[in-house]
């Protein structure tokens, strides 16, 4: 999206636009939400078409669906413990929702909904509300002992308790900004190097040959961003699991 002259509009790709004409505009349905729908449909489609055979010896698609199931199921059980089974559908939804946002964003002409802090913060806030709700439900008011580690000197309570509370409240912030920043950074770099290609190609023969440089960088970046996309979804899900473990077991 290089504009005329020397300007690089690296941030224009993150602008929201209503889709589906006037109807979409009236309910403020943006391309970001469209990608969410597509991502959700892809997950449901994978499970539906994969598991339709219900084969004892799975085919390719069924093996993939089962791999997704087993992977997240194992993560829940390993990180949270036996109680993790109850949170499995939530973790599964969260992981694949974030993963689809990250991966679909790498396709041309698509949109990365995880590059919006409003989206990632909403997800992180939901996680922290659920985690706190689970902790309060299991431990009642005893949950607040979480903010004062057992065995610490009572004198230090005025220091430790605020620090623990701040660290607890900073969880959604770090969770959301980590994902948001990674996605934004990747897409800004794509845009910047792509603009370099266009600008250099427009600057004569030598520039056109030299434009191979930024093109190569972008090719490498695609591979790198694929890794980041999966890794960040994994980090988001596993941190949620760790928070849930803390909520279930209190330290």
């Amino acid at each position: 999206m290089a504009t005329g002259g020397q300007a690089i509009d690296a941030l224009g790709q993150f602008e929201l636009h209503p889709v589906f004409g006037p109807i979409g505009a009236s309910v403020r349905f943006t391309q970001s939400n469209l990608m969410m729908l597509i991502g959700a449909a892809l997950i449901l489609g994978l499970l539906y078409f994969g598991m339709r055979a219900k084969a004892v010896v799975p085919g390719r698609l069924q093996a993939m669906a089962e791999l997704c199931y087993d992977g997240i199921h194992g993560m829940c059980i390993n990180q949270i413990g036996a109680e993790g089974k109850a949170f499995f559908p939530f973790i599964f939804t969260l992981f694949f929702f974030v993963l689809m946002g990250n991966l679909l964003g790498l396709l041309p002409f698509s949109f990365t909904y995880t590059s919006h802090i409003a989206v990632t913060f909403a997800l992180a806030a939901m996680v922290i509300v659920i985690v706190t709700g689970v902790a309060l439900r299991i431990h009642g008011l005893h949950f607040f002992s979480y903010f004062f580690p057992a065995g610490a000197p009572k004198l230090l309570a005025p220091l430790i308790v605020p620090v623990e509370i701040i660290s607890y409240l900073s969880r959604p912030v770090s969770l959301s900004i980590r994902l948001f920043a990674n996605m934004v950074a990747g897409h800004v770099m794509f845009e910047v190097f792509a603009s370099f290609i266009v600008m250099m190609a427009g600057a004569g023969l030598i520039g056109g040959v030299a434009a191979i440089g930024p093109l190569a960088v972008n090719v490498i970046l695609v591979g790198f961003e694929l890794l980041v996309a999966v890794l960040q979804a994994y980090v988001f899900a596993i941190l949620t699991c760790i928070y849930l473990h803390d909520a279930v077991h209190l330290h």
Binding site: A40, I43, F90
Partner: peptide, 23 residues
């Protein structure tokens, strides 16, 4: 921009629907 907030509302709806369908 109202779209920034409306996006989150739609996110909540889609995420909830996805969660219910999956679980």
């Amino acid at each position: 921009n109202p779209l920034t907030i409306s996006q989150v509302v739609w996110l909540a709806l889609i995420f909830l629907a996805l969660y219910l369908l999956l679980s």
